Measured scan of single mutants.
Amino acid sequence: DIEITTNGEEDAKRVIKELQKRNLEYHIEVHGNQWVIKVR
């Protein structure tokens, strides 16, 4: 598993777009303004 910590929603959406392009499965956890994306 890979864990990507982003700085808020805009940053997270940019990362998610890339993950979707590669058809990767991911899970999002929001901790305040930090979005942690866990990639399987």
Rank of each mutant, 00 (worst) to 15 (best):
L24S: 03
V36Y: 04
N33S: 07
L24I: 13
N23T: 03
K21N: 10
N23V: 03
K17Q: 13
Y26E: 00
K13D: 06
L19E: 00
A12R: 03
G8D: 13
R22D: 04
K17E: 13
V30D: 01
E25D: 11
A12P: 01
L19N: 00
H27T: 15
E29K: 04
W35F: 09
K21Y: 07
V30M: 08
E9S: 08
H27W: 14
Q34S: 08
K21H: 08
I2K: 05
K21S: 12
I28T: 03
Q34I: 12
K17F: 07
G32E: 12
K13F: 12
Y26H: 02
K38E: 04
K17R: 13
L19S: 01
N33W: 04
H31F: 10
K38M: 10
G8A: 08
K13S: 08
E25Q: 12
K38W: 03
T6Q: 02
K13I: 13
G32P: 02
V30W: 06
V30N: 04
E25L: 09
A12I: 05
G8P: 02
L24A: 05
I28Q: 01
Q20E: 14
D11W: 12
I37A: 01
G8V: 08
I4G: 01
K38D: 02
Y26A: 03
L19Q: 01
Q34L: 10
D11R: 07
Q20C: 10
K13L: 14
I4A: 01
I37H: 00
I16A: 05
W35D: 03
K21M: 11
W35I: 15
E29W: 03
Q20K: 11
R40S: 12
K38S: 11
I16W: 01
E25V: 10
N7G: 06
R14W: 13
H27M: 13
D11K: 06
N33Q: 06
H31T: 10
R14E: 09
I28W: 03
H31E: 06
K38G: 02
Q34N: 13
I28R: 00
E18V: 08
Q34D: 15
D11F: 09
R22G: 05
L19V: 03
K21D: 10
R40G: 10
V15S: 01
W35Q: 08
R22C: 15
V39E: 00
V15D: 00
V30G: 02
I2V: 10
V36I: 14
A12T: 06
A12V: 06
Y26P: 02
L19T: 01
V39C: 04
V39L: 06
I4R: 02
K13P: 01
D11E: 14
T6H: 02
G8F: 08
N33V: 03
N7Y: 15
I2P: 03
H27K: 12
L19I: 06
E18I: 12
V36W: 02
I16F: 02
H27P: 00
L19C: 06
V39S: 02
D1A: 12
I4Y: 09
K13M: 15
R14H: 07
E3K: 09
E10W: 09
V36H: 05
V30P: 02
V39F: 05
E3M: 14
K13R: 14
Q34H: 13
H31L: 11
N7R: 10
H31Q: 11
E25Y: 09
H27G: 05
E10S: 08
L24Q: 04
N23L: 06
I28F: 04
E10D: 10
I4W: 08
N7P: 04
I2C: 14
R40Y: 10
H31N: 13
T6M: 12
I28V: 13
V15K: 03
R14P: 03
T5E: 06
D1C: 14
H27Q: 13
T5C: 15
E18T: 05
R14S: 06
Y26W: 07
R22V: 05
R14G: 06
Q20S: 06
V36T: 04
V36A: 01
N33M: 04
T6F: 11
E18K: 04
T6S: 04
A12L: 13
E29I: 10
R22T: 05
I2Y: 15
I2W: 15
K38C: 11
L24E: 03
W35P: 04
T5P: 05
N23R: 08
G8W: 06
E25W: 08
K17W: 04
K17D: 10
G8H: 10
N33R: 03
E25K: 10
Q20I: 14
G32Y: 02
D11I: 08
V15Q: 02
K21T: 07
N7D: 12
R40C: 15
T5L: 13
I4E: 01
I4F: 09
E9M: 10
G32M: 03
Q20F: 04
R40A: 12
K17V: 11
R40K: 14
H27Y: 14
V15P: 01
E29S: 09
R14A: 11
E9Y: 14
E3W: 15
K38V: 15
N33G: 12
Y26L: 05
I16T: 03
R14L: 10
I2H: 11
E25I: 12
G32H: 03
V39W: 02
E3R: 12
R40P: 11
I37E: 02
W35T: 13
H27D: 14
E25G: 07
K38R: 10
T6E: 02
R14N: 07
G32W: 02
R22M: 12
D11T: 09
N7C: 15
E9N: 04
E25P: 07
T6V: 15
V15W: 08
R40E: 11
E10N: 08
V39T: 03
A12K: 03
H27N: 11
E3T: 15
D11A: 13
